[in-house]
Write a protein that binds this DNA or RNA. Structure first.
Lengths: 335, 335
DNA sequence: ATGAAAGCGCTAACAA
DNA sequence: TTGTTAGCGCTTTCAT
């Protein structure tokens, strides 16, 4: 067992309460005693036992983050930023991956909830009532789910999508395809805001899906894009976009000469693809900071003024978008 | 505060020790009492307070995993597999990202070590003595670091590299470039085993680097590959390989017709690239399982028979490797 | 300014 | 088979 407060007390020739005070509320102890205690603590390599402290205080100084799938390259930067932010405020961040399965998510929450002071639930699969219940029992911040009365950070793609529409319009595109990869996840369909933005810019939009947000979805979608005679594709996310790029190449269509492609998320995939992928970026640091700050606030009993915090997005133009081809690939094929 | 063992005891009309026993060592209590206790516990939604249990038991039922950078797509599957494995044995896995900075790593270890029963340190940046010290104080499993006497899982690229050499040889390649992206990380240079394997197969090998393991390293390396007249590249990892692919395309060289490219790690990048990337795979589940099992063993006082456990690798042939071009790209350029 | 002691929730002696 | 109780390490009254 490690060194305890009692041993420090003995070494410094004071009582345990003095040690506790010297370390936690230094103003309450005489300067020389304080120094003596601190020296002893350093010398012995004392560190408070978090379990004892938690038991006494009823707080763990830890936060939990539940995400659907850490292998989705969208999440690691988020986690990293949250961990950073939490650490700066003296909290440890505990991540858990729910694998997008409701049962696993429940199990994980059960296992983790008692070990943390609050939870960030990202795109939870749980039904609304369950989330409401949970939020009534402990501090909870939802991301990309909406439950009335529960604190939420809402990642809005509106700006990024509008910019994408404008970008494609400026390049002369007229007919686009949106590859929906939302499956049947709650509260997250991107379809509506995309339709609105494209309508507003007078761009033709064909939606296909919903499918699962996988590479193969993009592969599947690519020939449909050509068949529809569209010159641009907006994919559900970067991974799907990569599938589109892959299959367009296999079909002999070049990007962006024949077809322009836009992703969503600005993951590592976007920057390493060839050509590099035009995509819509949500500032991971901003979401992370807001969610963590809100959660720590809740853990300290501070309810935010607004239950919903918005985080914006923007287009990152890269190499997969360009002028619309005069003849669509399909028609050119006929020639 | 949540429901305690005392409340369950009262509800069931028994003492707290009976509740504890009914839940932890059911054989020690009368069947009907046991049932009564369990019912009461369920009804009240009782879950033991982990802080109290930890304090009492001296164990946390948590494990820590320290990795250099979670945004490296190599790690998420590892984490996921470890979390899975740990969960199955009743442990919570706590990941922390050290950002490849020794100071951060130390700080993180300080923050986390008291909250867990043991640590998996992946490619730690700490000096050997520090690791030895730490391992003397608590259960530690090293991955990709070697410190005498400390339990270690060693990921061996030997098999995968040998298969890559054989694969390239069979395709008629004669001159290859290895892009070293190891920087100055301890114990992890891939150079030696690569040289040995290529020598053994009579393949010419030019090493460039060491650089940092980044996309830009691959971009930088691509023209050098052509300048050396090589027809194949083995990159430090998939990310570097992606850089090579990107820049080869920019230089007008096609893959695999002009140059074959092999990565290492078999990350998501490899499967989504165009063409898909031939790479060397280390089974993430195997490393994860071994490391976690070893660590849990140590936490229970079981020293492994062998301090070092080996995990192998194998080549995953995909679309970036093919027959060597008769004329190298550089020479063809002269024509 | 400092010390003594209670008590957070739990498990495991020890008693009965 | 069950109950009583000590004690894990810590913070915080309450005294002094």
């Amino acid at each position: 067992m490690a060194v305890t407060i009692g041993e420090v007390a003995k070494a410094a020739g004071v009582s345990v309460s003095t040690v506790s005070r010297a370390l936690n509320t230094p103003d309450l102890v005489n300067a020389v005693t304080r120094q003596r205690v601190k020296d002893a603590a350093d010398r012995l390599g004392y560190a408070p036992n978090p379990a004892a402290r938690s038991l006494r205080e009823g707080r763990t100084e830890s936060l939990g983050l539940l995400i659907p799938d850490i292998t989705n390259p969208f999440f690691p930067p988020i986690f990293k930023a949250m961990q950073e932010r939490a650490k700066r405020q003296g909290y440890t961040l505990l991540v858990a991956d729910s694998d997008e399965r409701e049962a696993d998510e429940l199990e994980t929450i059960a296992a983790v909830s008692k070990k943390v002071d609050g939870l960030v639930l990202w795109a939870s699969m749980l039904p609304e009532e369950r989330l409401a219940e949970l939020a009534a029992r402990m501090p909870v911040v939802l991301v990309n789910r909406h439950v009335p009365g529960v604190v939420e950070v809402h990642v809005s793609l509106t700006d990024g999508i509008a910019q994408a529409a404008e970008h494609l319009k400026a390049y002369g595109h007229q007919q686009c395809v949106f590859v929906d990869g939302n499956g049947n996840r709650p509260d997250q369909s991107r379809s509506k805001s995309i339709r609105e933005a494209f309508d507003a810019h007078g761009l033709g939009l064909i939606e296909i899906g919903p499918y699962e947000p996988r590479f193969e979805t993009g592969v599947h979608a690519a020939p449909l894009v050509l068949a529809h005679g569209a010159t641009a594709v907006l994919a559900h996310n970067d991974l799907v976009a990569m599938g589109v790029l892959h299959q367009l190449a296999a079909l002999g269509a070049s990007v962006p000469a024949d077809v322009s492609v836009v992703g969503i998320d600005d993951t590592l995939l976007a920057s390493v693809s060839t050509p590099s992928l035009t995509t819509i970026r949500i500032a991971p640091d901003e979401v992370a900071t807001k969610a963590i700050d809100l959660l720590i606030g809740l853990a300290h009993g501070r309810q935010p003024a607004q239950p919903v915090t918005e985080v914006g997005s923007r287009l990152i133009p890269r190499g997969t978008t360009g002028p619309a081809s005069r003849a669509t690939f399909a028609r050119r094929d006929d020639a």
